[in-house]
Design a protein around this nucleic acid. Sequence first.
RNA 1: GUCCCCGUAGCUCAAUGGAUAGAGCGUUGGUUUCCGGAACCAAAGGCUGUGAGUUCGAGUCUCACCGGGGAUACCA
Length: 608
Amino acid sequence: MKPIIEILEEKISAVMSEVAGQEKCSAVIKQASDPKFGDYQANGIMALAKQLKTNPRKLADQVVEKLDISDICESPEIAGPGFINLRLKPEFISNGLLEINKDSVNLAVEKTTEPKNAVVDFSGPNIAKQMHVGHLRSTIIGDCICRMLKFLGHNVIPQNHVGDWGTQFGMLIAYLKDQQHNVDPDFVVTFDNDSGEITEDIEKANSIFVEISDLEKFYRDAKQKFDIDPEFKKWARTSVFLLQRRNKEEVLMWEAIVRASREHYLPIYERLKVNLKAKDERGESAYNDDLPHVVADLKKANLAKESDGAMCVFLDGFKNKEGEPLPFIIQKSDGAFLYATTDLAALRYRVGKLKADEIIYVTDARQKLHFEMLFAVARKAGWANDNVKLNHVMFGSVLGENGQPLKTRSGENVKLKELLDEAIERATKVVEQKNPELSLEEKKKIAQAVGIGAVKYADYSNNRTSDYVFSFDKMLAMEGNTAPYMQYAYARIKSIERKAESKGVDIATELGSISTLNLSEPTELELAKHLMRYGEAIQYAVSDFKPNYLTAYLYELAQKFSTFYTSCPVLIAEPDQRPTRLLLCDLTARTIKHGLTELLGIDVVEQM
RNA sequence: GUCCCCGUAGCUCAAUGGAUAGAGCGUUGGUUUCCGGAACCAAAGGCUGUGAGUUCGAGUCUCACCGGGGAUACCA
């Protein structure tokens, strides 16, 4: 089923072109701003009338005269300065619902006719450190973008650009050696750059893995020794050098550290229902060999030049504090490369090897300037032509109750694992209080879904670009636009269906054989129309990369359902009404479930 | 200094250049012989920071100013 808005846009735009005698007219169809104006409105008449120097209401008359959309809408009404108001016909709505009912997998949401290769760069944790709250937004927003694009039929290539390289590894390797961890030379981990496949001998890795399972402690201890022991410091430097020279022992140790980190963050992805796997990992280290070429190529193209000993690209429009040109530094004066260099190499790889039509970077707003410069350099160097879309999907910070970025009392970053643990713990208490008679196993499952769901939903429902204040109390509230409210709405429908079954109603048969609907009550129609807009909501959400559009749609759906539910009994409804109402219940449940589990990665529960 | 983001109801936040700017929380009042009241209904609450401009039409676009945050040469 094509989004209604698109059907109307095409039909009315075509008639406008005909009337105006020119191509490329736009009807500008929007959802009606007020229910009294109908369901949709065409706003494009006024602009066209202006252009043609004619009266907009007269133009609207002419368009409506020639317009044949009687299969979709009641006769259009012209209102105000030149709006065309459109009201859907009940039969059209009925047919739409029946179509959704038949397509249990996709809920009649159409796939794109132009599938793109979309590379989505998100999460990017630092190796050898625990994931903290700063990784939350990138990880789950990126995942949501992947899920939505994939659902619409695009070829999504997730990229986890992990921080697995840098001078800190010298320190960590030196510390491993210091702790007398010699590597079994037979222990091999290989990473295939092309397939992304990782092969490793887990058993042989265990001896090292066990020792650094507490990553944070390991890192802290290493850092401490590095700071106080000059001999160790020297050792660390040597280790970096050896690692960069691909000396086998150092490489093996480095791989062990990377592996231990992966063992840490993969379970977090799993808990968060984030579809990032080891195969999606392509860290900074993967681009090492290409970095000198990036610099050399930019030099060859006369884009890079030396300034104060550093290799820089200067771009028009970027200035520093003194008003002088601001450099995009690709090589430090000591010869080392930076994240700018790595990002350029990654971009070139994604366009060249991964055949990206679009690259989406999900990082916090503070990196905006970096990405502006990165994209500008890539364009100038011809590494991304105009057919490749480059998007920086930025987001605001997660703040504490004090309005400052969320930290622990001692001023450290809040560990993501601990944050999720607490969410589940608090959800457990709520479940215990609300529904003590459930089995321990059920309570555990519900607390998991509610706790994790609450954290994710709270993030998604906020505008991506603004900061938001993290509050367990608010996100776990049963009232308002929260995960528990959505999950409750779903559980309540499921409860109705269970009750129906217990009264001998075979829902599958009743809904399977349904061929005509009886949408007579206003609340039924309202709910039905909203159910048909699911595809539209996803389109909006994905075109701006804004998950809050999707949560807003789902919340509105749950509200419309509640309104319908209080005014229309389902189980005791008359025989000519019950199938329609059961269908409304079932489609609402299926849409909520699809939105939450498939697009947002939030579990639903049958009861809570 | 320059650039970027933000400023909307008491609070937290929505809003795709369109008609009378919407939700939730909180406040006040109401709703249960019926399917989960963890719900629903209703009321009060606004010069969209200020001032100009563009437009048939501006919370949305432009400019200036005020206030908050961020970025701004060798961290990522």
